[in-house]
Nucleic acid binder design. Structure first.
Length: 305
DNA sequence: GGAATAACCTGGATGC
DNA sequence: TGCATCCAGGTTATTC
């Protein structure tokens, strides 16, 4: 389940291999991996072949590779990707055997590293790649990690910056949270409030901040929201330092290696196990068609409003 | 306009 | 052993 730390590990792994590389061939094995691309597989292949990748950038859970301009097209473009639930971007040798669940392959030629293949594999096909135009950022700050250009793919423009982005506005986050009449966990998962947070890190940050996931967001004080944001950042930074969270083969870096943060979890996936703070069992409840894990002793249920 | 919900999707786990 | 069912969850379209 790739969230911000996992996607950042992938971006950082891709960056040195793709920056300055030319895409020499594109192979689409499964059209479903192009659900965000408007022109279909043939258009995707034709649009990318021969283009030079300028960087590897990320905002929240979205990745993009800005492309050098092409003759006759004024708009700046990028390959934008989302890993969904089970997507992987892998670096392989040119001509390497087709991966299980491989959907798209980009063969590239790098001036220093030679020939490589960027493989997009995805078991559940929730992820996708697309060619998209770049649009200016409203605040004129860089679009995200890995780029100094003040632009983002149009498909990414609607989501907020992520909490590790230097241009993230703590004040805007606090104001947005305190306007919401929904449960705080729902708000944390809302990518237009803050991007990059998924089910795992939402549970972990709420546990760390001792906030019950069903607390109505606007009932939280500004100080509590500030504390929660600090815990969000802490859990994301720790997960990033440990290479992300891997429960199975669903998340790996570009070399196919797993992360270690699963060993540092306090709430997510620990149903029935003792809370590392108070010793009482962690509980799991169904929430928004998914799971929510918390300590009912440390994270008191909110009183009815 | 804000909030809630369903649908998309595949493979592993579980139960019968 | 084989089949059916459940579950995992990020995003988006739809509904209320």
């Amino acid at each position: 389940m790739p969230e911000l730390p996992e996607v950042e590990v992938v971006r950082a792994g891709l960056e040195p291999a793709v920056t300055g590389a030319t895409i020499v061939a594109v192979t689409v094995l499964d059209d479903r991996a192009l659900t965000r691309h408007t022109g279909g597989a043939a258009d995707f292949e034709a649009t990318l072949t021969g283009r030079v990748v300028q960087a590897a950038a990320r905002r929240g859970k979205f990745l993009w590779l800005p492309l050098a301009a092409r003759e006759g097209v004024a708009a700046e473009e990028a390959v934008v990707g989302h890993l969904g639930m089970s997507g992987q971007l892998l670096l392989r040798a040119t001509g390497a055997a087709v991966e299980r669940h491989e959907r798209i392959r980009l063969d590239i030629q790098h001036p220093a590293h030679g020939e490589l293949a960027v493989v997009f594999a995805d078991q559940r096909t929730f992820g996708s790649l697309a060619v998209d135009r770049l649009v200016p950022t409203p605040d004129a700050a860089p679009g995200g990690w890995g780029t100094s250009e003040p632009s983002v793919p149009s498909q990414v423009a609607h989501i907020a910056r992520d909490p590790l982005d230097p241009a993230f506005s703590d004040r805007a986050f606090r104001d947005a949270v305190r306007r919401k009449g929904s449960a705080i966990k729902r708000v944390l998962l809302d990518q237009t409030v803050a991007s990059g947070i998924g089910n795992i890190y939402a549970d972990e940050a709420l546990w760390a901040a001792r906030i019950h996931p069903e607390t109505i967001a606007r009932t939280l004080s500004a100080r509590t929201v500030g504390r929660l944001l600090a815990e969000v950042r802490a859990v994301l930074e720790k997960a990033l330092a440990e290479g992300g969270t891997s429960f199975d083969a669903q998340y790996v870096n570009v070399n196919g290696q797993a992360g270690y943060f699963a060993h540092s979890l306090h709430a997510y996936g620990r149903t029935g196990e003792p809370c590392t703070r108070c010793g009482r069992p962690i509980v799991r409840v169904s929430f928004m068609n998914r799971s929510s894990h918390f300590c009912p002793h440390c994270q008191k249920e909110p009183r009815p409003v």
